[in-house]
Write a protein that binds this DNA or RNA. Sequence first.
DNA 1: CGTGCATGTTCGTCAAATCGAACGATCGGA
DNA 2: TCCGATCGTTCGATTTGACGAACATGCACG
Lengths: 187, 187
Amino acid sequence: MTGTPSGPPLDLIAAAIRRERERAGLSLTELARRSGLAKSTLSQLESGSGNPSVETLWALSVALDIPVSRLIDPPRPEVRVIRAGEGPAVRSERAGYTATLLASCPPGARRDVYRIDARPGEARESRPHQPGTVEHLIVGTGRALAGPADEPVELGPGDYIAYPGDVAHVFRALAPGTMAVIVMEHR
Amino acid sequence: MTGTPSGPPLDLIAAAIRRERERAGLSLTELARRSGLAKSTLSQLESGSGNPSVETLWALSVALDIPVSRLIDPPRPEVRVIRAGEGPAVRSERAGYTATLLASCPPGARRDVYRIDARPGEARESRPHQPGTVEHLIVGTGRALAGPADEPVELGPGDYIAYPGDVAHVFRALAPGTMAVIVMEHR
DNA sequence: CGTGCATGTTCGTCAAATCGAACGATCGGA
DNA sequence: TCCGATCGTTCGATTTGACGAACATGCACG
């Protein structure tokens, strides 16, 4: 029945709490006072013997002035470079449209970053994605008609648009060599 | 004394759980079986009368195949357009560098989107941001030298780089009319 | 028209998270 | 050296989350 041996990261949470507390320069007593929690609770949590509730986590995140995610999703940054032309390219059936996935959605993150290279031609329509998704589009070069399918907006170099990704939307290049960046923000 | 009566979003979590479950097309019984939780627990949670522990949340997120954050951070989408030249511009002291904030970090989100317009000149150095921050940079036009301050990378049109934002980093335009997009991802 | 199986809810019990208070340890000043 | 303050830990009492079983309801099938 294991299937997922991904044990509950109680130790990680414990470490995160201690780390964030010490980062804020707070003592256990002080944090207890600010968060309204008992310092015994905090002590036990930081010692790893604890399974806090959301209320507890929320109180902590408020007192530490950090998003709750910081306490449960362990991060890990890196340095990556993807040269123009490299990277996983998702070409449309029709030529003249190339979407390159620059930064996919790793565990813990919730956004994809694409580079779009397109030539004038048929519009590329996208069916709705996951509800709550928001797309950010910045035109680099050329011109494009993009946005919600029922109300697209004409954009020039440097223009920016944000629109819900959970409804049908469209992208159509209006000039040769049109390049754009799309940040697809999942929820 | 907080000023923000930001009550624990128990209702939001309840709604989120139900939403995500129905999205996955799972019945309460099925989700209970997959997550190893009692369906009574799930029922109570979805009814809003509950304060789940991290173990419970973790089991849910694994069973639903979503990050835990999806259950605790509330969303909110919109449609916005910022024309080139519009929007809050943050000019550097030295001329030749303009950063425009396209999408700031509203409550619940955790990323800022900037457009950078720069001319060759002095490098612009940024001190470390919040720990865990990751910056994504895509060059639109021109050339730039960017990345960690101790190991910058030369980038051309379409090139992409991701690097930790919690260490000193730098951006220097190498050609006139250099435009880039920076996605600053907080944690 | 019953029967079988499903979904989602309610109730009593148990384990555990949280709390408040007391306890040694450490540090700084008189 | 002694005293006070603060730090973090430990210990019972209480609240509360999680579980399992029973329950009401709806739907398909014979």
